[in-house]
Design a protein around this nucleic acid. Sequence first.
RNA 1: GGGCCCGUAGCUCAGAUGGCAGAGCAACGCCCUUUUAAGGCGUGGGUCGAAGGUUCGAAACCUUCCGGGCUCACCA
Length: 500
Amino acid sequence: MISVFKIKSAIKNKVKQRKMNDQNKDQFEIRKEKLESFQSKNIEAYPNSYNKKLDAAEALRKEEGESVKVAGRIMSKRVMGGSAFCHVKDSTGKIQFYIRKNKVGPEKYNFFKEIDIGDFVGVKGELFITNTGEKTVLAEDMKLLGKSLRPLPEKWHKLQDTETRYRKRYLDILVNNDSSLLFKLRSRTISRIRSILEDKNFIEVETPMLQPIPGGAVARPFKTHHNTFDTDLFLRIAPELYLKRLLVGGWDRVFEIGRNFRNEGISTTHNPEFTMLEVYSAYTDYRFMMELSRNIISGVGEMIKEAGYEASVDLTNGWQEKNIWELMSKYTGIEFDPGDSFDELNKKADKLDIPPGKDSPEKVADRIFSKYVEPELISPTLVTGYLSKFSPLAKSSPEDERIAERFEIFIGGQEIGNAYSEQNNPLIQREIFTRQLKEKTAEPDFSDITEIDSDYIEALEYGMPPASGLGIGIDRLIMLLTGAESIREVILFPMLKPLR
RNA sequence: GGGCCCGUAGCUCAGAUGGCAGAGCAACGCCCUUUUAAGGCGUGGGUCGAAGGUUCGAAACCUUCCGGGCUCACCA
Protein backbone atom coordinates (compact mmCIF):
# COMPACT_ATOMS: atom_id res chain seq x y z
CA MET A 1 0.00 0.00 0.00
CA ILE A 2 2.71 2.37 1.03
CA SER A 3 4.85 1.44 -1.93
CA VAL A 4 2.05 2.05 -4.43
CA PHE A 5 1.59 5.50 -3.01
CA LYS A 6 5.31 6.14 -3.11
CA ILE A 7 5.62 5.03 -6.72
CA LYS A 8 2.72 7.25 -7.70
CA SER A 9 4.20 10.25 -6.02
CA ALA A 10 7.60 9.49 -7.50
CA ILE A 11 6.12 9.53 -10.98
CA LYS A 12 4.35 12.78 -10.23
CA ASN A 13 7.62 14.21 -9.09
CA LYS A 14 9.43 13.24 -12.23
CA VAL A 15 6.75 15.03 -14.20
CA LYS A 16 6.94 18.01 -11.89
CA GLN A 17 10.71 18.08 -12.17
CA ARG A 18 10.50 18.29 -15.94
CA LYS A 19 8.00 21.10 -15.65
CA MET A 20 10.20 22.96 -13.23
CA ASN A 21 12.93 22.86 -15.82
CA ASP A 22 10.58 24.17 -18.46
CA GLN A 23 9.67 27.05 -16.20
CA ASN A 24 13.31 27.89 -15.77
CA LYS A 25 13.86 27.58 -19.43
CA ASP A 26 14.04 31.22 -20.22
CA GLN A 27 16.86 32.23 -17.97
CA PHE A 28 18.45 28.86 -17.45
CA GLU A 29 18.44 27.94 -21.14
CA ILE A 30 19.67 31.34 -22.22
CA ARG A 31 22.62 31.06 -19.87
CA LYS A 32 23.37 27.54 -21.01
CA GLU A 33 23.37 28.70 -24.60
CA LYS A 34 25.80 31.46 -23.67
CA LEU A 35 28.01 28.86 -22.04
CA GLU A 36 27.96 26.80 -25.22
CA SER A 37 28.77 29.82 -27.34
CA PHE A 38 31.75 30.58 -25.07
CA GLN A 39 32.97 27.05 -25.52
CA SER A 40 32.64 27.28 -29.29
CA LYS A 41 34.76 30.46 -29.14
CA ASN A 42 37.36 28.70 -27.01
CA ILE A 43 36.58 30.82 -23.99
CA GLU A 44 37.05 28.77 -20.83
CA ALA A 45 33.98 29.35 -18.65
CA TYR A 46 35.33 27.34 -15.72
CA PRO A 47 39.08 27.96 -15.46
CA ASN A 48 40.97 26.08 -12.77
CA SER A 49 42.38 29.07 -10.97
CA TYR A 50 42.89 32.79 -11.00
CA ASN A 51 45.81 34.63 -9.59
CA LYS A 52 43.77 36.94 -7.40
CA LYS A 53 45.91 39.56 -5.76
CA LEU A 54 43.61 41.28 -3.30
CA ASP A 55 40.37 40.68 -1.47
CA ALA A 56 37.72 43.32 -2.07
CA ALA A 57 38.23 44.81 1.38
CA GLU A 58 41.99 45.02 0.87
CA ALA A 59 41.61 46.61 -2.55
CA LEU A 60 39.32 49.25 -1.10
CA ARG A 61 42.09 50.24 1.32
CA LYS A 62 44.47 50.97 -1.56
CA GLU A 63 44.96 54.48 -2.88
CA GLU A 64 43.53 56.03 -6.00
CA GLY A 65 45.81 55.29 -8.96
CA GLU A 66 47.11 51.99 -7.59
CA SER A 67 46.68 48.90 -9.69
CA VAL A 68 44.64 46.04 -8.22
CA LYS A 69 43.49 42.59 -9.23
CA VAL A 70 40.31 41.32 -7.62
CA ALA A 71 37.82 38.54 -8.18
CA GLY A 72 34.34 37.63 -7.12
CA ARG A 73 30.74 37.15 -8.07
CA ILE A 74 28.93 39.82 -10.07
CA MET A 75 26.07 41.10 -7.94
CA SER A 76 24.84 43.97 -10.06
CA LYS A 77 25.31 45.23 -13.58
CA ARG A 78 24.45 48.68 -14.88
CA VAL A 79 25.17 49.09 -18.55
CA MET A 80 25.08 52.50 -20.24
CA GLY A 81 25.83 51.85 -23.87
CA GLY A 82 29.59 51.91 -24.19
CA SER A 83 30.40 51.58 -20.49
CA ALA A 84 29.11 49.82 -17.41
CA PHE A 85 29.39 49.52 -13.65
CA CYS A 86 29.34 46.22 -11.79
CA HIS A 87 29.66 45.25 -8.17
CA VAL A 88 31.75 42.19 -7.50
CA LYS A 89 31.44 40.34 -4.22
CA ASP A 90 33.91 38.12 -2.42
CA SER A 91 33.98 36.91 1.17
CA THR A 92 35.31 40.25 2.41
CA GLY A 93 32.78 42.50 0.73
CA LYS A 94 31.90 44.20 -2.51
CA ILE A 95 33.94 46.33 -4.85
CA GLN A 96 32.77 48.15 -7.95
CA PHE A 97 34.46 48.01 -11.29
CA TYR A 98 33.90 50.21 -14.29
CA ILE A 99 34.44 48.91 -17.79
CA ARG A 100 34.59 51.06 -20.89
CA LYS A 101 34.51 50.05 -24.51
CA ASN A 102 37.18 52.53 -25.61
CA LYS A 103 39.44 51.27 -22.81
CA VAL A 104 39.24 47.49 -23.29
CA GLY A 105 38.29 47.45 -26.98
CA PRO A 106 35.05 46.30 -28.61
CA GLU A 107 35.84 42.59 -28.51
CA LYS A 108 36.36 42.40 -24.75
CA TYR A 109 33.51 44.80 -24.16
CA ASN A 110 31.10 42.68 -26.13
CA PHE A 111 32.24 39.65 -24.18
CA PHE A 112 31.59 41.57 -20.97
CA LYS A 113 28.05 42.28 -22.12
CA GLU A 114 27.47 38.53 -22.32
CA ILE A 115 28.42 38.13 -18.67
CA ASP A 116 25.47 37.68 -16.30
CA ILE A 117 24.75 38.70 -12.76
CA GLY A 118 25.91 35.75 -10.68
CA ASP A 119 28.96 34.93 -12.81
CA PHE A 120 32.39 34.88 -11.21
CA VAL A 121 34.91 37.20 -12.79
CA GLY A 122 38.43 38.45 -12.19
CA VAL A 123 39.16 42.11 -12.88
CA LYS A 124 42.35 44.09 -12.92
CA GLY A 125 42.93 47.80 -13.31
CA GLU A 126 43.69 51.05 -11.56
CA LEU A 127 41.59 52.46 -8.77
CA PHE A 128 39.74 55.72 -9.30
CA ILE A 129 37.01 57.62 -7.54
CA THR A 130 33.68 58.03 -9.30
CA ASN A 131 31.65 61.21 -9.40
CA THR A 132 29.56 59.87 -6.56
CA GLY A 133 32.68 59.16 -4.52
CA GLU A 134 32.98 55.38 -4.73
CA LYS A 135 36.41 53.80 -5.07
CA THR A 136 36.21 51.76 -8.26
CA VAL A 137 38.44 49.59 -10.42
CA LEU A 138 38.81 50.90 -13.95
CA ALA A 139 38.95 47.58 -15.75
CA GLU A 140 41.80 46.91 -18.13
CA ASP A 141 40.92 43.27 -18.36
CA MET A 142 38.13 40.98 -17.18
CA LYS A 143 38.13 37.23 -17.09
CA LEU A 144 35.27 34.80 -16.62
CA LEU A 145 36.03 32.51 -13.69
CA GLY A 146 32.81 30.56 -13.34
CA LYS A 147 29.53 30.74 -15.24
CA SER A 148 26.31 30.91 -13.29
CA LEU A 149 23.37 29.18 -14.96
CA ARG A 150 20.62 30.27 -12.62
CA PRO A 151 19.45 33.78 -11.76
CA LEU A 152 20.21 35.04 -8.26
CA PRO A 153 17.42 36.16 -5.93
CA GLU A 154 16.29 39.72 -6.40
CA LYS A 155 18.81 42.34 -5.33
CA TRP A 156 16.54 44.62 -3.35
CA HIS A 157 14.16 42.34 -1.45
CA LYS A 158 16.72 39.52 -1.38
CA LEU A 159 15.60 36.04 -0.43
CA GLN A 160 12.67 36.17 1.99
CA ASP A 161 11.08 32.74 1.87
CA THR A 162 12.04 31.01 5.10
CA GLU A 163 12.01 27.53 3.71
CA THR A 164 14.17 28.44 0.70
CA ARG A 165 16.58 30.28 2.99
CA TYR A 166 17.06 27.07 5.00
CA ARG A 167 17.09 24.66 2.09
CA LYS A 168 19.35 26.79 -0.11
CA ARG A 169 21.45 28.37 2.57
CA TYR A 170 24.10 29.23 0.00
CA LEU A 171 21.68 31.74 -1.50
CA ASP A 172 20.74 33.06 1.91
CA ILE A 173 24.31 33.83 2.97
CA LEU A 174 25.09 35.11 -0.51
CA VAL A 175 22.37 37.74 -0.67
CA ASN A 176 21.28 38.28 2.93
CA ASN A 177 24.17 39.97 4.67
CA ASP A 178 22.63 39.65 8.13
CA SER A 179 22.51 35.91 7.76
CA SER A 180 26.08 35.77 6.55
CA LEU A 181 27.25 37.87 9.49
CA LEU A 182 25.32 35.72 11.94
CA PHE A 183 27.07 32.55 10.83
CA LYS A 184 30.47 34.22 10.83
CA LEU A 185 29.72 35.33 14.36
CA ARG A 186 28.82 31.78 15.27
CA SER A 187 32.16 30.62 13.96
CA ARG A 188 34.02 33.27 15.91
CA THR A 189 32.10 32.44 19.06
CA ILE A 190 33.12 28.81 18.90
CA SER A 191 36.70 29.73 18.21
CA ARG A 192 36.63 32.14 21.17
CA ILE A 193 35.31 29.42 23.46
CA ARG A 194 38.09 27.17 22.25
CA SER A 195 40.76 29.74 23.01
CA ILE A 196 39.33 30.50 26.47
CA LEU A 197 39.54 26.81 27.33
CA GLU A 198 42.94 26.30 25.76
CA ASP A 199 44.27 29.25 27.75
CA LYS A 200 43.20 27.37 30.86
CA ASN A 201 45.07 24.27 29.70
CA PHE A 202 42.07 22.26 28.66
CA ILE A 203 42.76 20.02 25.70
CA GLU A 204 40.29 19.41 22.94
CA VAL A 205 39.44 15.82 22.10
CA GLU A 206 37.09 13.89 19.85
CA THR A 207 35.15 10.92 21.15
CA PRO A 208 32.90 8.46 19.31
CA MET A 209 29.69 9.60 17.70
CA LEU A 210 28.88 5.98 16.85
CA GLN A 211 28.30 4.24 20.14
CA PRO A 212 27.13 0.72 21.00
CA ILE A 213 25.22 2.00 24.03
CA PRO A 214 24.11 5.64 23.95
CA GLY A 215 24.64 7.26 27.33
CA GLY A 216 25.26 10.48 29.19
CA ALA A 217 21.71 11.75 28.83
CA VAL A 218 18.16 10.53 28.59
CA ALA A 219 16.95 10.81 25.02
CA ARG A 220 15.77 8.65 22.19
CA PRO A 221 18.76 7.87 20.00
CA PHE A 222 19.17 7.44 16.26
CA LYS A 223 19.96 3.87 15.38
CA THR A 224 22.29 2.75 12.63
CA HIS A 225 24.13 -0.38 11.56
CA HIS A 226 27.74 -1.27 10.93
CA ASN A 227 28.08 -3.78 8.11
CA THR A 228 31.46 -5.35 8.75
CA PHE A 229 30.77 -5.97 12.42
CA ASP A 230 27.12 -6.67 11.61
CA THR A 231 26.15 -4.76 14.69
CA ASP A 232 23.70 -2.03 15.59
CA LEU A 233 25.16 1.26 16.68
CA PHE A 234 23.64 4.50 17.93
CA LEU A 235 24.48 8.10 17.19
CA ARG A 236 25.61 9.63 20.42
CA ILE A 237 23.17 11.59 22.53
CA ALA A 238 26.10 12.97 24.58
CA PRO A 239 29.89 12.51 24.72
CA GLU A 240 29.93 12.54 28.54
CA LEU A 241 30.81 8.94 29.33
CA TYR A 242 33.73 8.90 26.91
CA LEU A 243 35.13 12.19 28.14
CA LYS A 244 35.09 10.88 31.69
CA ARG A 245 36.96 7.78 30.57
CA LEU A 246 39.72 10.24 29.68
CA LEU A 247 39.73 11.52 33.27
CA VAL A 248 40.27 7.92 34.31
CA GLY A 249 43.22 7.87 31.92
CA GLY A 250 44.78 10.82 33.66
CA TRP A 251 43.82 13.66 31.34
CA ASP A 252 42.64 16.16 33.91
CA ARG A 253 41.22 18.91 31.73
CA VAL A 254 39.43 17.94 28.53
CA PHE A 255 36.69 19.37 26.38
CA GLU A 256 34.83 18.51 23.22
CA ILE A 257 32.79 20.68 20.91
CA GLY A 258 30.69 18.53 18.67
CA ARG A 259 27.41 17.23 17.47
CA ASN A 260 24.88 15.33 19.52
CA PHE A 261 21.92 13.55 17.97
CA ARG A 262 18.54 13.11 19.60
CA ASN A 263 15.67 11.44 17.85
CA GLU A 264 12.98 13.68 19.24
CA GLY A 265 10.64 16.50 18.39
CA ILE A 266 11.71 19.47 16.31
CA SER A 267 10.87 22.94 17.50
CA THR A 268 12.21 26.48 17.51
CA THR A 269 14.64 25.36 20.21
CA HIS A 270 15.30 21.76 19.13
CA ASN A 271 17.16 20.45 16.09
CA PRO A 272 17.77 16.68 15.90
CA GLU A 273 21.49 17.32 15.63
CA PHE A 274 22.90 20.11 17.71
CA THR A 275 26.26 21.30 18.91
CA MET A 276 27.35 20.85 22.51
CA LEU A 277 30.34 21.95 24.45
CA GLU A 278 31.29 19.54 27.21
CA VAL A 279 34.11 20.32 29.62
CA TYR A 280 35.57 18.17 32.40
CA SER A 281 38.03 19.20 35.07
CA ALA A 282 39.59 16.83 37.60
CA TYR A 283 40.04 17.77 41.26
CA THR A 284 37.26 20.33 41.16
CA ASP A 285 33.60 20.29 42.04
CA TYR A 286 30.59 22.04 40.52
CA ARG A 287 31.61 25.34 42.12
CA PHE A 288 34.55 25.42 39.75
CA MET A 289 32.21 25.03 36.81
CA MET A 290 30.15 27.99 38.01
CA GLU A 291 33.24 30.11 37.63
CA LEU A 292 34.22 28.55 34.33
CA SER A 293 30.82 28.92 32.72
CA ARG A 294 30.81 32.54 33.76
CA ASN A 295 34.26 33.00 32.20
CA ILE A 296 33.18 31.38 28.97
CA ILE A 297 29.87 33.15 28.58
CA SER A 298 31.04 36.59 29.61
CA GLY A 299 34.16 36.11 27.47
CA VAL A 300 31.96 35.44 24.50
CA GLY A 301 29.81 38.41 25.46
CA GLU A 302 32.86 40.67 25.35
CA MET A 303 33.86 39.35 21.97
CA ILE A 304 30.38 40.11 20.66
CA LYS A 305 30.66 43.67 21.90
CA GLU A 306 34.11 44.11 20.37
CA ALA A 307 32.71 42.86 17.09
CA GLY A 308 30.12 45.60 17.27
CA TYR A 309 27.12 43.47 18.10
CA GLU A 310 24.86 43.82 21.05
CA ALA A 311 23.70 40.70 22.81
CA SER A 312 20.08 40.86 23.92
CA VAL A 313 21.19 40.23 27.52
CA ASP A 314 24.13 41.56 29.52
CA LEU A 315 26.35 38.49 29.78
CA THR A 316 29.05 40.04 31.92
CA ASN A 317 27.14 41.54 34.84
CA GLY A 318 24.23 40.53 36.97
CA TRP A 319 25.07 36.84 37.42
CA GLN A 320 23.25 35.26 40.29
CA GLU A 321 22.82 31.93 41.98
CA LYS A 322 19.33 30.76 42.94
CA ASN A 323 17.79 27.72 44.49
CA ILE A 324 15.24 25.98 42.33
CA TRP A 325 12.74 25.42 45.16
CA GLU A 326 12.93 29.05 46.22
CA LEU A 327 12.46 30.15 42.62
CA MET A 328 9.43 27.93 42.20
CA SER A 329 7.91 29.18 45.44
CA LYS A 330 8.61 32.78 44.48
CA TYR A 331 7.15 32.69 41.00
CA THR A 332 4.15 30.45 41.69
CA GLY A 333 3.22 31.78 45.11
CA ILE A 334 3.01 28.22 46.40
CA GLU A 335 5.61 26.78 48.78
CA PHE A 336 7.74 24.08 47.19
CA ASP A 337 10.18 21.86 49.03
CA PRO A 338 12.62 19.18 47.92
CA GLY A 339 10.83 16.87 50.34
CA ASP A 340 7.51 17.15 48.48
CA SER A 341 5.99 13.78 47.70
CA PHE A 342 4.72 12.97 44.22
CA ASP A 343 1.17 13.44 45.54
CA GLU A 344 1.88 16.82 47.02
CA LEU A 345 3.63 17.90 43.85
CA ASN A 346 0.66 16.84 41.76
CA LYS A 347 -1.75 18.74 43.97
CA LYS A 348 0.33 21.88 43.64
CA ALA A 349 0.63 21.35 39.92
CA ASP A 350 -3.14 21.11 39.69
CA LYS A 351 -3.53 24.49 41.37
CA LEU A 352 -1.09 25.92 38.83
CA ASP A 353 -3.02 24.54 35.91
CA ILE A 354 -0.30 22.04 35.10
CA PRO A 355 -1.62 18.62 34.12
CA PRO A 356 -0.60 16.07 36.80
CA GLY A 357 -0.89 12.45 35.70
CA LYS A 358 1.21 9.35 35.57
CA ASP A 359 4.39 11.23 34.74
CA SER A 360 7.33 11.08 37.02
CA PRO A 361 7.54 13.80 39.69
CA GLU A 362 10.52 15.19 37.85
CA LYS A 363 8.42 15.91 34.79
CA VAL A 364 5.74 17.60 36.85
CA ALA A 365 8.27 19.79 38.62
CA ASP A 366 9.94 20.53 35.34
CA ARG A 367 6.70 21.61 33.76
CA ILE A 368 5.98 23.96 36.60
CA PHE A 369 9.51 25.31 36.37
CA SER A 370 9.36 25.73 32.59
CA LYS A 371 6.08 27.57 32.68
CA TYR A 372 6.46 29.76 35.74
CA VAL A 373 10.16 30.24 36.40
CA GLU A 374 12.18 29.78 33.21
CA PRO A 375 10.73 32.77 31.34
CA GLU A 376 11.65 34.98 34.32
CA LEU A 377 15.33 34.07 34.31
CA ILE A 378 16.66 36.74 31.99
CA SER A 379 20.03 37.74 33.39
CA PRO A 380 22.44 34.87 33.80
CA THR A 381 21.20 32.67 36.62
CA LEU A 382 22.79 29.55 38.03
CA VAL A 383 20.01 27.41 39.38
CA THR A 384 20.89 24.90 42.11
CA GLY A 385 18.99 22.48 44.29
CA TYR A 386 18.22 19.74 41.75
CA LEU A 387 17.27 16.41 43.25
CA SER A 388 19.90 13.68 43.30
CA LYS A 389 17.50 11.04 42.13
CA PHE A 390 17.03 12.87 38.87
CA SER A 391 20.73 13.57 38.39
CA PRO A 392 22.06 10.07 37.73
CA LEU A 393 25.59 11.08 36.82
CA ALA A 394 26.04 13.71 39.55
CA LYS A 395 27.25 13.46 43.10
CA SER A 396 25.04 14.35 46.04
CA SER A 397 25.75 17.16 48.40
CA PRO A 398 27.46 16.00 51.61
CA GLU A 399 25.11 18.32 53.57
CA ASP A 400 21.90 17.01 52.06
CA GLU A 401 21.93 13.65 50.32
CA ARG A 402 18.67 14.45 48.50
CA ILE A 403 20.27 17.34 46.60
CA ALA A 404 22.79 16.97 43.80
CA GLU A 405 25.88 19.12 43.46
CA ARG A 406 24.52 20.48 40.26
CA PHE A 407 23.43 23.69 38.56
CA GLU A 408 21.85 24.71 35.32
CA ILE A 409 22.53 27.98 33.54
CA PHE A 410 19.55 30.05 32.47
CA ILE A 411 19.87 33.18 30.37
CA GLY A 412 17.26 35.06 28.43
CA GLY A 413 14.56 32.69 29.70
CA GLN A 414 16.30 29.66 28.23
CA GLU A 415 18.37 26.81 29.53
CA ILE A 416 21.88 27.23 28.19
CA GLY A 417 23.91 24.75 30.20
CA ASN A 418 24.09 22.09 32.85
CA ALA A 419 26.90 21.15 35.21
CA TYR A 420 27.64 18.98 38.20
CA SER A 421 30.18 17.27 40.38
CA GLU A 422 30.73 13.98 38.61
CA GLN A 423 29.80 10.66 40.16
CA ASN A 424 33.03 8.67 40.43
CA ASN A 425 31.92 5.88 42.72
CA PRO A 426 31.61 2.83 40.44
CA LEU A 427 29.36 0.92 42.84
CA ILE A 428 26.82 3.72 43.13
CA GLN A 429 27.01 4.42 39.40
CA ARG A 430 26.32 0.80 38.52
CA GLU A 431 23.34 0.74 40.84
CA ILE A 432 21.91 3.90 39.28
CA PHE A 433 22.48 2.64 35.72
CA THR A 434 20.80 -0.64 36.54
CA ARG A 435 17.78 1.08 38.04
CA GLN A 436 17.58 3.49 35.08
CA LEU A 437 17.71 0.65 32.60
CA LYS A 438 14.73 -1.01 34.21
CA GLU A 439 12.71 2.21 34.04
CA LYS A 440 13.78 2.96 30.48
CA THR A 441 13.11 -0.43 28.96
CA ALA A 442 9.58 -0.18 30.29
CA GLU A 443 9.01 2.52 27.67
CA PRO A 444 8.61 1.33 24.06
CA ASP A 445 10.76 4.16 22.72
CA PHE A 446 13.78 2.77 24.45
CA SER A 447 13.28 -0.88 23.62
CA ASP A 448 16.60 -0.84 21.73
CA ILE A 449 18.51 -0.17 24.92
CA THR A 450 19.00 -3.52 26.57
CA GLU A 451 22.10 -3.16 28.66
CA ILE A 452 24.00 -0.68 30.77
CA ASP A 453 27.37 0.67 29.73
CA SER A 454 29.41 -1.70 31.88
CA ASP A 455 32.53 -0.75 29.97
CA TYR A 456 32.14 2.71 31.46
CA ILE A 457 31.57 1.29 34.94
CA GLU A 458 34.69 -0.79 34.51
CA ALA A 459 36.62 2.37 33.71
CA LEU A 460 35.31 3.93 36.91
CA GLU A 461 36.39 0.82 38.80
CA TYR A 462 39.97 1.65 37.89
CA GLY A 463 39.39 4.94 39.68
CA MET A 464 38.33 8.36 38.48
CA PRO A 465 39.53 11.53 40.22
CA PRO A 466 36.95 13.82 41.74
CA ALA A 467 35.84 16.05 38.91
CA SER A 468 33.25 18.45 37.64
CA GLY A 469 31.68 18.66 34.22
CA LEU A 470 29.84 21.30 32.24
CA GLY A 471 27.70 21.17 29.12
CA ILE A 472 26.69 24.24 27.13
CA GLY A 473 24.31 24.14 24.19
CA ILE A 474 26.16 26.10 21.56
CA ASP A 475 23.18 26.64 19.27
CA ARG A 476 21.12 28.11 22.06
CA LEU A 477 24.01 30.26 23.14
CA ILE A 478 24.24 31.63 19.61
CA MET A 479 20.51 32.28 19.62
CA LEU A 480 20.98 34.28 22.76
CA LEU A 481 23.88 36.25 21.36
CA THR A 482 22.16 37.09 18.10
CA GLY A 483 18.58 37.35 19.30
CA ALA A 484 17.55 34.62 16.84
CA GLU A 485 13.98 33.46 17.37
CA SER A 486 14.57 29.97 16.07
CA ILE A 487 17.39 27.45 16.33
CA ARG A 488 17.08 27.07 12.56
CA GLU A 489 18.35 30.59 12.13
CA VAL A 490 21.66 29.67 13.74
CA ILE A 491 22.25 26.26 12.12
CA LEU A 492 23.55 26.48 8.55
CA PHE A 493 21.60 23.48 7.30
CA PRO A 494 18.82 22.75 9.78
CA MET A 495 16.85 19.53 9.54
CA LEU A 496 13.86 19.92 7.23
CA LYS A 497 11.57 17.33 5.83
CA PRO A 498 13.26 15.96 2.71
CA LEU A 499 11.49 16.98 -0.49
CA ARG A 500 10.26 13.99 -2.42
C1' G B 1 0.27 14.52 17.01
C1' G B 2 -3.62 19.08 18.07
C1' G B 3 -4.81 24.41 16.88
C1' C B 4 -3.97 28.79 13.81
C1' C B 5 -1.67 30.81 9.37
C1' C B 6 0.94 30.54 4.54
C1' G B 7 2.10 28.41 -0.72
C1' U B 8 0.43 33.07 -7.40
C1' A B 9 6.53 34.26 -12.94
C1' G B 10 13.68 32.85 -11.38
C1' C B 11 13.08 36.60 -6.80
C1' U B 12 9.73 40.14 -3.87
C1' C B 13 4.65 40.70 -3.76
C1' A B 14 -0.74 42.45 -5.48
C1' G B 15 -5.09 39.89 -6.99
C1' A B 16 -12.85 42.47 -1.58
C1' U B 17 -18.01 39.79 -2.20
C1' G B 18 -16.28 33.43 -7.67
C1' G B 19 -16.21 36.47 -14.00
C1' C B 20 -10.13 36.87 -19.51
C1' A B 21 -3.79 35.98 -13.95
C1' G B 22 -0.98 41.38 -12.60
C1' A B 23 3.34 44.79 -10.92
C1' G B 24 8.57 45.67 -9.65
C1' C B 25 13.30 43.32 -10.02
C1' A B 26 15.63 39.56 -13.11
C1' A B 27 15.51 37.94 -18.58
C1' C B 28 15.28 39.21 -24.07
C1' G B 29 15.58 43.44 -28.13
C1' C B 30 16.75 48.65 -29.11
C1' C B 31 18.83 53.57 -27.11
C1' C B 32 22.34 55.38 -23.59
C1' U B 33 30.54 56.17 -21.92
C1' U B 34 30.66 58.16 -14.02
C1' U B 35 26.09 54.44 -12.55
C1' U B 36 24.82 52.55 -7.74
C1' A B 37 17.31 49.86 -6.27
C1' A B 38 20.81 53.80 -13.09
C1' G B 39 17.23 55.51 -16.88
C1' G B 40 13.95 55.33 -21.58
C1' C B 41 11.03 52.42 -25.36
C1' G B 42 9.45 47.52 -26.51
C1' U B 43 8.96 41.84 -25.80
C1' G B 44 8.61 37.06 -23.69
C1' G B 45 7.69 34.37 -19.28
C1' G B 46 2.37 30.96 -15.16
C1' U B 47 -0.67 23.40 -14.56
C1' C B 48 -1.94 30.11 -9.24
C1' G B 49 1.85 23.67 -4.26
C1' A B 50 -0.97 18.71 -5.97
C1' A B 51 -5.45 15.86 -6.65
C1' G B 52 -10.58 15.56 -6.31
C1' G B 53 -15.35 18.23 -5.64
C1' U B 54 -19.20 22.44 -5.86
C1' U B 55 -20.40 25.86 -10.00
C1' C B 56 -22.46 27.99 -16.52
C1' G B 57 -17.63 29.67 -14.68
C1' A B 58 -12.54 28.49 -9.30
C1' A B 59 -6.09 31.35 -7.95
C1' A B 60 -10.40 32.44 -4.76
C1' C B 61 -15.45 28.12 -1.98
C1' C B 62 -15.30 22.59 0.05
C1' U B 63 -12.37 17.87 0.92
C1' U B 64 -7.84 15.27 0.93
C1' C B 65 -2.70 15.27 0.27
C1' C B 66 2.42 17.72 -0.07
C1' G B 67 5.74 21.50 1.87
C1' G B 68 6.54 25.52 5.32
C1' G B 69 5.77 29.07 9.64
C1' C B 70 3.87 30.03 14.57
C1' U B 71 1.88 27.68 18.86
C1' C B 72 0.52 23.69 22.35
C1' A B 73 1.90 18.72 23.42
C1' C B 74 6.08 15.35 23.28
C1' C B 75 11.08 16.29 24.38
C1' A B 76 16.48 18.71 27.34
